[in-house]
Amino acid sequence: MDFQESEIQHATKFTVKSGAQTASINVYNSGKLHVEGKVSELKNWLEQLKESIEKGSGGPVALLPAEIEKFPQTLRDRVPDCDDVVLWFFQEALRCYKADSVAGAAFMLGAASEKAVLLLIDGYVAAIADEGKRNALLTRLNNRMISKKYDEFKASYNGCKSKPNDQALAQDLAQLLDGAFNFYRHTRNAVGHPQIVPDLEKGVILANLGQFIIYVERIYMLMRHFKASGVVV
């Protein structure tokens, strides 16, 4: 089978071809999966793959278009300047997943996400042209938990007059970053706060391990934009 990967609104679409048959499976930022295409053996196979992923029954690792072992190298290729801490926690998340520790994978993925978002916020603040506004935002960010820092960053960014013109990148804060950031944070908190046994689906965690690469790539694209163009608020 041949496949092509493309980005659509709120999801990554994998279009699969086998002979004359074509079907696709969409992996949404929330972790949900949706199969599309005409009735065929190929579509039936994708439906079985979807069910296998959602149940965490073991098959998806071998069936992923990009093998899970290649994820760290894919991240390095797409984000050559990726921070070592982000990469280390991402690799630990993969090790946990392959060891069948879904909770460990969720926790490590949340840590990797937090570091990436902190780098994004730091890059944004450093690029603010007006010193007074930069210092005011720094004061609001000081000693706050990650969720509050992200809220302060978003509130400032909403009034930013120097947002990127690229349509996909301009929409990513609300569409991809918000959804992914909150998913990674909530799943990590579900593990890190031992009030109840966390309800984590192995297939959803796997889907978001793959989505993490795109998430970090967008974060670094925004960071480069802030550095090159400055931030006017």
Rank of each mutant, 00 (worst) to 15 (best):
R140G: 05
R140Q: 14
R140D: 11
R140N: 09
R140L: 15
L141I: 06
L141P: 02
L141E: 03
L141Y: 05
N142V: 08
N142I: 10
N142A: 14
N143P: 12
R144D: 06
M145Y: 14
M145W: 13
I146T: 08
I146S: 10
I146L: 13
I146A: 09
S147G: 10
S147Q: 11
K148I: 12
K148P: 08
K148F: 11
K148V: 11
K148H: 13
K149C: 15
Y150N: 02
Y150S: 05
Y150W: 12
D151P: 03
E152L: 11
F153S: 03
F153E: 00
F153M: 02
K154H: 08
K154F: 13
K154S: 08
K154T: 04
A155P: 04
A155S: 09
A155G: 06
A155R: 13
A155I: 12
S156H: 06
S156A: 14
S156T: 00
S156V: 01
S156E: 03
S156K: 01
Y157G: 03
Y157H: 08
Y157I: 04
N158I: 08
N158W: 13
G159A: 02
G159E: 04
G159F: 02
G159R: 04
G159C: 02
G159V: 02
G159S: 00
C160S: 04
C160L: 07
C160W: 07
K161G: 07
K161F: 07
S162D: 04
S162G: 05
S162I: 01
S162Q: 01
S162K: 01
K163M: 14
K163I: 12
K163D: 13
P164E: 01
P164F: 00
P164Y: 00
N165P: 13
N165C: 10
N165I: 10
N165Q: 15
N165H: 12
N165A: 15
D166E: 06
D166F: 06
Q167T: 07
A168H: 15
A168T: 10
A168K: 13
A168L: 14
A168E: 15
L169T: 01
L169V: 00
L169C: 06
L169H: 06
A170C: 14
A170H: 14
Q171W: 11
D172Y: 12
D172S: 15
D172H: 12
D172M: 12
D172F: 11
D172A: 11
D172K: 11
A174N: 15
A174E: 15
A174I: 12
A174K: 15
A174P: 11
A174R: 14
Q175A: 14
Q175T: 12
L176S: 09
L176G: 07
L176P: 06
L177Y: 03
L177V: 01
L177W: 07
D178E: 09
D178W: 08
D178T: 04
D178M: 09
G179L: 08
G179D: 07
G179V: 10
G179F: 09
G179R: 07
G179Q: 07
G179K: 09
A180F: 11
A180T: 00
A180D: 05
A180G: 05
A180M: 12
A180K: 04
A180P: 01
N182M: 00
N182V: 02
Y184C: 00
Y184P: 01
R185Y: 08
R185T: 02
R185A: 03
H186R: 09
H186P: 01
H186A: 14
T187P: 03
R188H: 09
R188V: 06
R188D: 03
R188Y: 08
N189A: 08
